[in-house]
Amino acid sequence: MTVRNSLKFALAAPLALALAACGGEADGDAEADVIAPIEAPEGANWTDTVTVSESDGYVLGNPDAPIKLVEYASHTCGGCANFSQTAKPSIKEYVATGVVSFEQRNLVRDPIDLAVATLVRCGADENMQVLSDEAWNYLPQIFENVQQNSAAYEAAGKAPVDQRFIGIAQAAGLIDFFAARGLSADQQRACLSDTAKIEAIADNSSEQANELKITSTPTFILNGRKLDAIGWNDVEAALQRAGARQE
């Protein structure tokens, strides 16, 4: 989804953002042997280790973990917000073993989503998933802000490209929200006016969605295979079948 098409879609129906949960491929593999924990390098902790993948995703944990879990997520997706709230503490327990890594990738659905995706990447790499989780907790207020500021939101779509996402973020209440979490307003505006980076996020999302046939969020991929999973119980069962250590 390009920036232009993303804006056109969302400005036509700015609050019609819900997508059905993804139906992936059935995971019928036999249960693997449990994989022993892998120690982090001296002085490091896997739950504090973040790297950016070749797919422009943010990987939490051992980048060479034998079990690699990927979530394609949208920041305006209620199901993604629920997964963030219910699953992340447990995911970090698996990540801490060094056996599982968790990579978050963007599937961009609308300009608000793209603005949030830009802002969570605006600071240090290790803060991306943390800020994403906090933004998902704030999602109901984001929707309310857009409803209350609908004229400003629609006007942002007509602004010059380098000002467009600043206006969207302001209408959604994102500038104040992220400023309270360590990203200054000036820092945010610089990121939101960097059209090349914003285009890259949108283009990566579109290309990967087309390549992997991902049409909705959240979608989970485990060791390269799309899961038939819509929530943490299904995802955890797949991790354990793959050999993740069970406490």
Results as ranks from 00 to 15, higher is better:
residue 4 R to K: 12
residue 5 N to T: 13
residue 13 A to R: 14
residue 13 A to E: 15
residue 21 A to T: 12
residue 26 A to P: 10
residue 27 D to K: 05
residue 27 D to H: 14
residue 31 E to R: 14
residue 32 A to V: 15
residue 34 V to D: 15
residue 40 A to F: 10
residue 41 P to D: 05
residue 43 G to Q: 13
residue 44 A to V: 15
residue 46 W to Q: 09
residue 49 T to I: 07
residue 50 V to M: 14
residue 51 T to I: 14
residue 54 E to K: 06
residue 55 S to A: 14
residue 67 I to C: 01
residue 68 K to P: 14
residue 81 A to G: 15
residue 83 F to W: 06
residue 92 K to D: 12
residue 94 Y to A: 12
residue 94 Y to T: 03
residue 102 F to C: 06
residue 105 R to A: 00
residue 106 N to G: 01
residue 117 A to G: 10
residue 119 L to N: 00
residue 120 V to K: 11
residue 122 C to R: 09
residue 125 D to F: 03
residue 129 Q to K: 00
residue 131 L to F: 10
residue 133 D to Y: 14
residue 133 D to L: 11
residue 136 W to M: 13
residue 138 Y to G: 04
residue 138 Y to I: 06
residue 139 L to W: 02
residue 143 F to H: 09
residue 143 F to M: 07
residue 145 N to A: 03
residue 147 Q to G: 12
residue 147 Q to I: 03
residue 148 Q to M: 12
residue 148 Q to W: 08
residue 151 A to H: 08
residue 156 A to F: 02
residue 161 V to L: 06
residue 162 D to T: 04
residue 162 D to H: 04
residue 163 Q to T: 08
residue 165 F to S: 06
residue 167 G to M: 07
residue 168 I to D: 02
residue 174 L to F: 01
residue 176 D to N: 09
residue 178 F to L: 05
residue 184 S to H: 07
residue 188 Q to P: 09
residue 190 A to W: 08
residue 190 A to T: 06
residue 192 L to G: 06
residue 192 L to N: 08
residue 195 T to C: 03
residue 196 A to R: 12
residue 196 A to I: 15
residue 196 A to D: 15
residue 197 K to G: 08
residue 197 K to T: 07
residue 199 E to Y: 01
residue 202 A to L: 08
residue 207 E to S: 10
residue 211 E to I: 01
residue 218 P to E: 02
residue 220 F to W: 05
residue 220 F to M: 05
residue 221 I to L: 02
residue 222 L to A: 11
residue 226 K to R: 07
residue 226 K to H: 02
residue 227 L to H: 01
residue 227 L to M: 00
residue 229 A to N: 06
residue 230 I to D: 04
residue 240 Q to R: 13
residue 244 A to E: 11
residue 245 R to E: 15
